[in-house]
């Protein structure tokens, strides 16, 4: 008889907390408190499915990318997003095992609205400038949130993030290259970038989530920090993003859509106009501009291809 089985839940929890406090990594087969498992499943399946849904707005510009080089690069970039979805869903799927759930359940949860995807991927794209801006600033924001979890107490997530962040370096430069070419280009091209910034600004602010649960009624940040899944709060991450990217935006001669925005030396933080958080709540409830269209596209392609999965489910070798 296993001696672990004889330990009380409390002792197990105590040992678990000791392990993560000591910087030990938790693995898929290790004992973990239900609260930890559920927090991880929510976080990682949402992260994973957001990559899969995030491929859709960008893929709109894959066949349209202006040159051979841009076509190849954005194809590779969107492929990476699907690849990140693959890595993350694998991590989530292993966590879901005790509940007997698989990838098809994750897809169903997405389709019936139980599994949310990131607010930015509900937005429409209007021009090639948007494709560049997603690569530059949306990926920039994603890099900030993802590197914040590289030291995650959950080993498989940390390892997936390690791979993802390594590829994000390419994504960041890919985005910068598109934006740089446009910013240094013709009047029309410069307008394209400025319009893209204006269009994405609110979404970028919302990207990091509300500063506290008072803003929107719920926030997962407290529990993920408690279990050492992440380090910084939503607001700290948003501030980091401003610090890294505002000077770069301005250096290209682009304008911030928020004229009140400035750095307060005394408070040591960026002061900015809050986005409309009620809009945020609507968007993540799949009521954003392109939420239903993208869900519909994902559902249609999934169901339309069901025969392929059925066909090969029958083979064993």
């Amino acid at each position: 008889m296993s001696n672990l089985a004889m330990k009380s839940e409390e002792e197990m929890l105590e040992q678990f907390i000791e392990r993560i406090e000591a910087g030990d990594k938790i693995e898929a087969d290790d004992w973990m408190p239900e609260e930890y498992r559920i927090a991880l499943i929510k976080l990682i399946s949402m992260h994973g499915i957001s990559e899969i849904m995030g491929a859709l707005p960008e893929k709109e510009w894959v066949p349209k990318a202006p040159t051979l080089h841009r076509k190849l690069a954005i194809m590779a970039k969107v492929q990476d997003e699907m690849g990140h979805g693959q890595l993350l869903l694998r991590v989530a799927e292993d966590l879901l095992k005790p509940y007997g759930k698989t990838r098809s359940d994750i897809m169903q949860d997405l389709f019936n609205g139980d599994l949310k995807f990131h607010n930015v991927f509900h937005m429409d794209t209007k021009s090639w400038g948007d494709a560049g801006l997603i690569g530059w600033l949306v990926d920039g924001a994603a890099i900030i949130t993802q590197t914040n979890m590289l030291g995650s107490s959950y080993g498989p997530y940390a390892r997936a993030l390690q791979r993802i962040c390594a590829e994000e370096v390419f994504h960041a430069q890919h985005g910068e290259a598109i934006i740089m070419a446009l910013a240094e280009g013709t009047e029309e091209q410069r307008t394209m970038v400025q319009e893209a910034i204006n269009h994405w600004w609110e979404s970028l602010l919302m990207f990091f989530g509300p500063a506290s649960k008072e803003t929107t009624g719920s926030s997962k940040q407290d529990i993920t920090i408690k279990y050492k899944i992440r380090k910084k709060t939503n607001e700290q991450l948003r501030q980091d993003f401003f610090t890294k990217y505002i000077p770069r935006i301005l250096s290209l001669g682009l304008k911030l859509p928020d004229p009140t925005m400035h750095y307060d030396e005394e408070k040591q933080m960026w002061i900015y106009q809050q986005p409309d958080w009620s809009e945020f709540k609507k968007i993540i409830k799949n009521q954003g501009p392109r939420s239903q269209a993208r869900l519909n596209l994902r559902r249609t392609s999934y169901e339309n291809n069901a025969w392929v999965r059925d066909a090969l489910a029958a083979t064993t070798n």
Binding site: I52, A55, L56, K59, V62, P63, L68, H69, K71, L72, M75, A76, V78, Q79, M82, G83, G85, Q86, L89, R103, L297, S301, N305, V308, R309
Partner: peptide, 29 residues
């Protein structure tokens, strides 16, 4: 092939077949 991106029957296959589209466009170039 690039129009298929994100819509293949299986995520792993999506990633794999996109590499083929990229290689092929590389050959065109």
């Amino acid at each position: 092939g690039s129009e298929w991106l994100g819509l293949a029957p299986h995520i792993e296959e999506d990633v794999a077949s996109s590499s083929i589209s990229q290689d092929t466009m590389g050959h065109a170039a």
